[in-house]
Nucleic acid binder design. Structure first.
Lengths: 350, 350
DNA sequence: ATGAAAGCGCTAACAT
DNA sequence: ATGTTAGCGCTTTCAT
């Protein structure tokens, strides 16, 4: 029977490393945290001891004294689809937009050793729980993704004095830092392009009018057309989903069969709308020019490839992470908001 | 100048509550944690003190002594789309499947007060970081979503003796608990249905053949047809995305223009494939019968609505969460795996 | 049933 | 440059 040489199940602590390295806990701590006031030779010894023991810092212990958690929350705030629907449907999870946000966030957070905690707020109760959780300092900051114009979360987050960054400015005056693409300009880009194509009968599949993005993109499109003297615009509201885009397009075709230009407020809706056009015997772009919004993977999934307004979502998300980290570092003093310039990506649909 | 009556910025601690209630820390702790050995009257007093002080337990402190974190990781393991692509594209984030999983998980986790930490593993380096993080006990357990047949994570997770549940059995012998729908049966359901419709020329848009789900659904479909004496099946591989489905469908139409039945290994790919059929002048279901897989929101976004193999993803995810919680409670002793029965949902496409 | 006290693993003064 | 020490807020024996 072999001697039990395996190390104890208990993970190594600072103390263990210190013992192996023949130094004090404090010195090991300094090396771990990259303090410059450590003799290079000792530093090396400690490094080896860390490797030998397989030491990894205990976050709870560290957190207890530093009062930082090295984690931030990604809060997704939506209206629950249907109350009967016991389960949260999470519309946004199916939008390529979400993946791009996570991706951009992690590009910055991961190298910084910060974890991302995913939290949902889909009703009063969950919002309350969320806030008490956040307030207790269980995360260092929050990134808020909301699709509700009347979302109380920005206000509550501000009152809680929590480092926070919003994806898109709050729909009401609010001091929180936000990052967004200029939606108004984006919608204008779409309108101008459609006009420059010589189109005459305009329509739009708008986003949900209880969402800021939905509201602003519609307003921007309508205003930009008005500047060209065009005031007659057919509009159908979609819900930012594939199916919603298809539905809205059908309505539009019923309302205004002669339409030859349509701006669709998200690529995902455009993806749903284009087969509807096809089925109705309209060729894109010959009969109907289509411009989307986002420049997500959905734009390339369209046939023909979609001309669309590009938002650099990954970059924007990375910027949100950076601003959040900066606020956290600066004891919560708010960082400046930043607005990205959208651009028009011309492909084949318009 | 009004007296400063506002409470100190410092959040209330157990000590504060104890002082207000006039009892010891230990008693407050007992009340918080629902110990039964507390006088009902005292319990009430403590409750009030908690409310008065706005006390919320400090997770780090608790975690330090209990060695539990009350959080679990949702690990998404994928191959990074393109190495040049600095940013992780996160294919799975755009699949309705992901949202359903999160939804089902949170249905169980949220009431249990467990947080969900989102982690990505998309290359060797991130996998290494991930493991050292997990090993240190920063989460109590992990739910693994992988789309790689040769993913080393199940093995590594098992070696690390971490409570873990896999979405779908590991592609190699592995003792970890898993939850899945019987993919073989699901694919057979699709095949049998298509055969019962009297179709004669079969094809399939398979999932990626480096993913377990992709492999098994293809094998199940081919085998089931073979049982009907049909051995000639056209196959094109897709990547489980919308665009991938469209591409594969085009190839299929080129290879076998006479096809009149196609099984598509995911609804999202079917959503991409159906407009291709339409454009090629094929009516669904008259000319071509189409059966999908998943019964996700994409199935209803199809036109016509998609006949598909239903996987109860939300329920499966909820079950994963339950099994994980059970394992965590039982000091890591593995829970039994569970296999759900898929069913055929007949709509209009076949 | 309740309280006193130890200690989880770490960082940050402070002292040297 | 390094070590000593005092907690961070909580749970949990162990007494009572």
């Amino acid at each position: 029977m072999p001697a039990d040489v395996s190390p104890p199940a208990r993970p190594a602590t600072l103390e263990d490393v210190a013992a192996v390295a023949g130094v004090s806990r404090a010195t090991v701590s300094r090396v771990i945290n990259g303090a410059t006031t450590v003799d290079p030779a000792l530093r090396e010894v400690v490094r080896e001891a860390v490797a030998a023991t397989g030491y990894v810092p205990n976050r709870a212990a560290r957190s207890l004294v530093t009062r930082r958690t090295d984690s931030v929350a990604l809060v997704v705030s939506e209206r629950r689809h249907s109350p009967s629907d016991g389960s949260f449907a999470g519309r946004i999870f199916s939008d390529p937009y979400f993946g791009r946000v996570v991706s951009g966030l992690l590009d910055v957070l991961r190298p910084a050793g910060i974890q991302l905690v995913l939290m949902l707020a889909d009703d009063e109760e969950s919002r309350g729980q969320l806030l008490s959780y956040l307030r207790q300092g269980h995360v260092d900051g929050v990134v808020l993704l909301t699709s509700l114009a009347d979302d109380p979360l920005p206000r509550l987050l501000d009152e809680a004095r929590l480092p926070a960054v919003l994806a898109g400015r709050a729909p009401y005056p609010n001091p929180l830092t936000y990052v967004e693409a200029d939606q108004l300009t984006g919608a204008r880009l779409a309108a101008d392009h459609l006009v420059s194509l010589g189109r005459r009968s305009f329509a739009t599949v708008a986003g949900p009018q209880d969402s800021p993005a939905g509201q602003v993109r519609l307003a921007g499109f309508v205003d930009a057309l008005a500047a060209h003297g065009i005031t007659d615009v057919a509009c159908a509201e979609g819900d930012f989903t594939h199916a919603g885009g298809a539905l809205a397009m059908k309505r539009l075709l019923g309302d205004r069969p002669e339409l030859d230009a349509v701006f669709i407020a998200s690529d995902l809706m455009a993806l749903g709308a284009m087969p509807v056009l096809l089925r109705a015997g309209r060729d894109v772009p010959t009969d109907v020019a289509v411009v989307g919004f986002d420049d997500s993977s959905a734009a390339l999934a369209c046939d023909p490839p979609l001309t669309t307004v590009r938002q650099p979502v990954e970059e924007m998300a990375a910027e949100m992470a950076r601003l959040l980290l900066r606020q956290i570092g600066a004891a919560g003093s708010p960082a400046p908001s930043v607005v990205f310039r959208p651009s028009l990506v011309v492909r084949d649909s318009a």
